[in-house]
Amino acid sequence: MRNDIPELQKRIYGGDTQAFKELYDCFCTPLLQLALAIVHNREMAEEIVADVFIAIWKKKENLHQASNLKWYLYAATRNIALNYLRKYAHKKTLHLDEACLPEYEVNPEAQLISHEMMQHINRAIGELPPQCRLIFKLVKEDGLKYREVAILLNISIKTVENQVGIALKKLTKMKAFLIASLPGAQ
């Protein structure tokens, strides 16, 4: 996740559409994923993400008040998604477990571990239970605070702590096992 969000925020506040597109490219997929996890309907999730970005652009004059644009985006996605759910409350209540989450791929720039190893890790991440995977992703990859994830998913901070712990434990076990079984490893 890029770390020049405040810079983008300033440019968008000044009406810079290029900066807005950069923000979009950076957050479209993560926000879509969160929306999907809440509404579990692809079409609806896409509409929600579009609504979020349109709202950001329309209210860009207020952007200087938002101290944390990233959180603002996630919170807006959650709020709009909950609105959709309320509007379509006649449809069944959806659980995170049913949400379809996208596949993971390895960032090729990462040189920390071999390509093969990264594939294993990412496959392992893909095998985590959906809620666990989403929480882990929001904390580790999107850099959200435990408190923020708890608010987004309407769960307790304890649950976030537990799920991150479980994910880490499972992944580490898997990786330790893989390293031990690789030729040449001691």
């Binding site: 979009y24 997929t29 993560p30 509409e47 993971y104 390895v106 990264m118 890790i121 390293i179």
Partner: peptide, 26 residues
């Protein structure tokens, strides 16, 4: 190992078609 995993960047497979579709609405 655990620290290593934490530092390994993962990335959601961006669905370019889907991103374009939403962008046309925005």
């Amino acid at each position: 190992f655990a620290a290593n995993i934490w530092q390994t960047p993962i990335r959601e497979t961006a669905d370019a078609e889907c991103e374009n579709r939403i962008w046309t609405a925005v």
